[in-house]
């Protein structure tokens, strides 16, 4: 921890300076499996923000409809509106002078671009496949997680919609040969991904980060894509096994997790300064909604029961004029009986 001290101090001063100006707000999927977020894109942005020291107010939510763009991640900024693509968020951070790549040489900058392309072309399709298409993982882990965490009633259709959009994306990237038969397409995707992980491991060697001692945007990208694969508990785990066999990549991920995403509560002062209401806020947001939902559901249920009772004639109300009361004693009696019965 000690050797990162200068950066942290630097971050604290920046945070103090920016406390007045409204910080940028990041909406992202909430975390699980010891990860700060379950989504690769969210992880990349979170990691980059931590690396560069950008002050962020983080909303960890599970309802994409609550984000300002309707999708996650989303970055709400003061002057550029809302941004939904991770690489544009990183460009925005850079414009705000939060640059994790400041120390890189031109050649290292070029390498960053090349390796990001390599990961997106070779590894990302396989990751999407293993999380969203592989039926065991999808049913047991991915869909289950999203269905349990997305609030009712979105949890019934959002996971399916995400599934089909990922499937479409894979089909288009990999050409029109359908993915359903699985076997052939799966082997090809996995072969590329395994090769890609091996290449990354070779490039990393025994360094702490890809370009020496301090993390850069390439580290954020690699971490974002590899950490979920490393931490999630997947029943069909061919990719996972290969990653676990590459010790330096595993160590790279856990190292970033412990240094930059310490467990809640055991945080350094920098985090308190940058996002005092980060975690609490989201729970705070949820509380009134929960109460409202409870009350609403009680009313809806009551209304349904009553209207059913009226419509089917279990309860009927007869209006009785006082003059005719004597003539219509029978009707009154029946009416009273039924009203009493309801009570």
């Amino acid at each position: 921890m000690l050797k990162f001290c200068p950066k942290k101090c630097f971050r604290v001063t920046i945070d103090a300076k920016n406390n007045m100006a409204a910080a940028m707000e990041l909406y992202c999927w909430k975390g699980d499996w010891d990860l700060p977020s379950v989504d690769p894109d969210c992880l990349t942005v979170l990691a980059y923000a931590r690396f560069s020291g950008a002050p962020l107010k983080v909303h960890k939510i599970t309802n994409p409809w609550k984000s300002p763009t309707g999708s996650l991640p989303a970055l709400k900024t003061k002057d550029d509106g809302c941004i939904s693509q991770p690489h544009k968020m990183i460009i925005h951070f850079r414009k705000q002078k939060y640059n994790a790549d400041y120390d890189l040489s031109a050649k290292e900058g070029a390498d960053t671009l090349a390796f990001i392309c390599l990961m997106e072309e070779k590894f990302l399709p396989a990751l999407i496949y293993t999380l969203w298409v592989d039926s065991k993982n999808y049913v047991d882990v991915t869909r289950r997680w999203y269905a349990e965490n997305i609030p009712f009633p979105l949890n019934f259709f959002l996971p399916n919609r995400m599934h089909s959009s990922f499937l479409d994306r894979l089909r288009l990237i990999k050409g029109d040969n359908g993915l359903e038969p699985g076997e052939e397409a799966e082997k090809e995707l996995y072969k590329d991904a395994l090769e890609c992980m091996t290449l990354l491991s070779q490039r990393l060697g025994n360094q702490t980060f890809f370009f020496g001692q301090s993390p850069s945007s390439l580290d954020a990208h690699v971490f974002g894509l590899l950490a979920p694969l490393l931490k999630m508990k997947l029943p069909s785990n061919k990719l996972q096994q290969h990653l676990k066999s590459l010790d330096n990549l595993c160590h790279f991920c856990t190292n970033i997790l412990t240094l930059y995403f310490p467990p809640e509560g055991a945080d350094g002062p920098s985090r308190k300064a940058s996002s005092p209401h980060g975690g609490d806020n989201s729970e705070f947001d949820n509380e009134p909604h929960k109460r409202r939902n409870q009350i609403l559901s009680v009313f809806v249920a009551l209304g349904a029961m009553l209207s059913y009772a009226f419509l089917t004639g279990i309860v009927s109300v007869h209006r009785v004029d006082s003059h005719h009361a004597v003539q219509k004693t029978e009707a009154v009696r029946i009416g009273e009986d039924e009203i009493n019965g309801e009570d």
């Binding site: 090349a114 392309c117 390599l118 997106e120 070779q202």
Partner: peptide
């Protein structure tokens, strides 16, 4: 060497994807 091979592959993807 291994690192150079990794870099070569990465740059080839850069050309293909951009």
């Amino acid at each position: 060497n291994e690192v150079q091979k990794a870099e070569m592959k990465a740059y080839m993807e850069l050309v293909n994807s951009m």
